[in-house]
Amino acid sequence: MSALPPYATTGQRIWHYSFRVICGLIFFFLIAPILVIIPLSFNAEDFFTFTPEMLSFDPEGYSTKHYEDFFTNSDWQLALRNSLKIAPVATLLSVSLGTLAAIGLSQSHVPFRRAIMAILISPMIVPLIISATGMYFFYSNPYIPLPFGWTIELPFTLTGTYIGVVLAHAALGIPFVIITVTATLVGFDQSLTRAAANMGAGPVTTFFRVQMPLILPGVVSGGLFAFITSFDEVVVVLFVGSAGQKTLPWQMFTGLREQISPTILAVATILITLSVILLFVVEILRRRSERLRGITPS
């Protein structure tokens, strides 16, 4: 595919170039909607399309007023603060529990490995609306049901609380941590832990001094996935949370549904910048992890 051989027929040439054009159009379809948001967010008018001033690159047509609105409007600021309060805690929870479990799962003899894996991955597979429905019902119970009709009474219900949203988001982020960390552990040389134990290190020392540094890239990229899952999640927050837990995606969602304000485009641009940064961090981590494990990056 890389280059056309000199003996190619006209038909082959035409196909070769038209294929590239088709691919170019598909790439355009993938990326253009995201890129077009960026200039639109600098629109001086409250329109969602390019004004004649913008098309003639008149500085008058551009302004940062939608960004100013984002940084001064109390609704948006509350949403931003909530997002920043919920996502890191949920991430921490899923990363710490997820990493431990991934290490457990990567041992050679784990009973019911397949079933456990299926349960741990299920939050990623079950449609969000169903998770949200279940959590909405369950978190409004003031108790935790146990088998044989026993219950643990709770002095509160989780619906509409910060803890409820964090728990729900942590559950949704766990599959990503499990997948990335187990993938990293596949290449992990178990003889290293044995060597450490041989030299007198306890399990805790071995974990922090030998295993952790080697699987750290996987853990961090799993954490980033969990973070973006929580940061970007709206369905569960809409159901489990109350107005006090209004997050950035929630604010965007209601904004888009009710009265679409151009501030959303400014927020979108900020989020695009964030995702570009995350994309590069994950890519760097992936390469680093492969290098550490002695696999040359593809």
Partner: peptide, 28 residues
């Protein structure tokens, strides 16, 4: 002992997922 250790590592997360995710689905 190895099996038990592996399960002990998995148990906290499994419990967490059961309470925060599987039981809500069962409730539904």
């Amino acid at each position: 002992r190895q099996k038990l250790r592996a399960l002990a590592l998995i148990a906290p997360l499994l419990l967490f997922i059961l309470i925060s995710f599987v039981m809500p689905i069962a409730d539904m």
